[in-house]
Amino acid sequence: MKAITANRLYDGVVLYVGPNGGFVERFEQAALFDEAAANAELEVVLTRDTAIASAYVIEADASGPIGREALRESIRRYGPTIRKDLGKQSEAANERL
């Protein structure tokens, strides 16, 4: 399966495309697509140029990013592995979400 991830334009925060086409901040809320649907959805997402700075398709299943880029994408999902107090893994971020 695939998911679509992005970085928000105004602050760079990692986003995913959610079930109803909007962006969500947590992978748990991300929608999963088959390949064709993901590519079609990406086309739509890329037109939202004032909302995001970048967007691309990743390999994922319900547990999280998988495949070759699994480590990179899991670091994006949680935050730096050497600073557990930073990024989405931190409590501060979780409270905000």
């Binding site: 760079g12 925060v13 990179r72 994006r76 730096p80 930073l86």
Partner: peptide, 22 residues
């Protein structure tokens, strides 16, 4: 400005987009 046009301009000012943020 599109991201493509903006990117070289922000880079001229040391602003990158990394994994988690700018």
């Amino acid at each position: 400005l599109s991201e493509e046009a903006f990117k070289p301009l922000r880079l001229m000012n040391g602003l990158y987009l990394q994994l988690h943020a700018y």
